[in-house]
Amino acid sequence: MVGKVILYFILVSVLWVLAYRFINPPVTLLMIMKNIGRKSDGKSFKLEKKWVDFKEISDNMIRAAVAGEDQKFLHHMGFDMAAIGNAYHANQADSTKMKGGSTISQQTAKNVFLWPGRSWIRKGFEAYFTILIEIFWSKQRILEVYLNVIEMGDGIYGAEAAARSYYGKSCRDLNRSQAAMIAACFPNPIRWTPLHPTKFIRHRHYLIMKNIKRLGPLKF
């Protein structure tokens, strides 16, 4: 019985990942759970998002995301072991300030296929789906999905909605500084906003701008 359940799960999950190689995810559990939370707080439903194909996303936004979140994105197979090790040691030294070591692939996997929250079970599923998308998707597809589904503000999902909300333009027209400022807020888009950057966000913006120059053109 257990063996059949595991086999069915593997079959369904592989088909799910394969489907999303060609079909754009219409909605994620995070979006649903966030809006349930908004309703519980007496707020109105809010879901600002608009899918844009990879070629329609500004190269500045693509490079800013990689520079700010995962500089080894094009070279790893889903996991940055050095970053994971550094995060582990940092968290052991100070458990009050949890440091993450997730790659763009891991973030995409958990945003598209999993529920919000933190647990070892969820981490296990995250690793599993990360491996699947690295096998069945291209790096370009992973980044395309990532920049269309991740939370970039309160009720704001994806680069196009973020660009229009913060700068009144399409993400294809973002300049390097604007793209870097949006990426600087990725770790906590509810707490931070490109419109009112804190000292910490301005520093992250500076580092991302510096890393964009250092990375140079990305070759997919």
Rank of each mutant, 00 (worst) to 15 (best):
W51P: 03
V27N: 09
K72R: 15
G100A: 08
E56S: 10
E69C: 04
K46N: 12
R21K: 15
V17P: 03
G42S: 12
R63C: 11
G42N: 08
K50A: 11
K72W: 11
M61K: 02
I84N: 03
A67M: 05
E69A: 04
I62S: 01
L18R: 09
D80G: 04
A67N: 06
M61F: 13
H76F: 07
M98I: 15
N35C: 05
G37W: 00
I32C: 06
K34H: 13
D41Y: 06
T96I: 09
M98R: 13
F73E: 01
M81C: 00
M81W: 09
R21G: 11
R63I: 13
Q71Y: 01
Q71T: 14
Y20I: 05
K49L: 03
A87M: 05
H76L: 07
M31G: 01
K97P: 00
G100L: 10
E48R: 10
G85I: 04
K46F: 02
K55A: 12
M77F: 14
G37E: 02
A65L: 07
K99W: 01
V66F: 01
G78V: 06
I84H: 03
K34Q: 15
T28P: 00
K50L: 07
R63M: 12
G78N: 05
K72N: 15
A19F: 12
R38K: 15
I36R: 01
D53P: 04
H89W: 15
S58I: 00
M81L: 15
N35T: 06
M77I: 09
M81A: 08
A65T: 13
I36W: 00
Q92K: 15
N35K: 03
V52N: 04
S58P: 00
A65G: 07
F79S: 04
G68Q: 02
A82I: 14
E56M: 12
K99L: 11
A83I: 09
L29M: 10
T96Q: 14
K55M: 04
D53G: 14
K46L: 14
K49D: 00
V66H: 04
V66E: 11
A93L: 13
A83G: 09
K46P: 07
N86I: 10
P25N: 08
K43N: 02
